Amino acid sequence: MKMNQRWLGSWAFMMIVLLAQCDKAKEVEPNDENELITTVRLNFSEIGTSTATTFAFRDVDGEGGSPPSAFEKITLKPNTSYKVTVEFLDESKSPAQDITKEVKEEADEHLLVFTPAPASLLTYTYDDKDSRNFPIGLTGTAKAGTAGTGKLKVQLRHQSPVGGNPVKNGMPGPGSDDVNLDFDVEVR
């Protein structure tokens, strides 16, 4: 009988320890719910003129399924500066949901990253900041380089707090992608 009581006591102790460990693991996991984004619009307005052009990616059924219905090449003038605004939509719903508003509301958890390849293709300067003075990227200035072709990687990084502590530090490293697109770019 004592053997059964010891075994039962040991089993109960192990279950308490195991449950306590599970609770601790849940506490440090980030709340990283990525948004469904089916449409990305990059709005380029040439500084000093009224010329504005929108370049879009659109895949209404999301990842998988049908191919994107739009993935437009970005065409810019050499050595020209542009005011850039970015819009995100979820068009899988009717009416479409404007995810840009959510990104603004959760600015402390989002960072847009613009990576041109080659690097000389264009430069991007952030115009907007979150409450901790880190860049967001929904508005900025792009300056096209000399004539050439390449890619512009556009990433919307979701950088949710971990264990109640912010992880966004102005760098792309922490978090996961809500959007990761490679636009073709031609500067001519």
Rank of each mutant, 00 (worst) to 15 (best):
N34I: 07
N34W: 08
L36H: 14
I37T: 08
I37V: 13
T39D: 13
V40Q: 05
R41I: 13
R41A: 15
L42F: 04
F44A: 02
S45F: 05
S45L: 12
E46M: 12
G48F: 01
T49N: 09
T51S: 14
T53R: 11
T53Y: 03
T54G: 06
A56G: 09
A56P: 08
D59W: 06
D61W: 12
G62K: 10
G64Q: 09
G65E: 13
G65L: 11
G65D: 13
S66L: 15
S66A: 15
P67V: 06
P68L: 07
P68N: 06
S69C: 13
A70C: 06
K77H: 06
S81M: 03
V86Q: 01
L89A: 09
L89V: 07
D90W: 04
D90G: 08
E91G: 02
S92R: 11
A96M: 06
A96V: 10
Q97W: 07
D98F: 01
I99E: 10
T100W: 00
T100M: 03
K101D: 14
E102F: 12
E102D: 14
E105F: 08
E106F: 05
E106W: 10
E109V: 02
E109Y: 05
E109F: 04
H110P: 08
L112R: 00
F114E: 01
A117P: 08
A119C: 02
S120F: 10
S120H: 09
L121G: 00
L122E: 03
L122A: 11
D130H: 06
D130R: 02
D130L: 06
D130P: 11
S131A: 14
F134H: 14
F134Q: 14
I136V: 15
G137R: 01
L138F: 03
T139S: 15
G140E: 03
T141S: 10
T141H: 07
T141Y: 04
K143N: 09
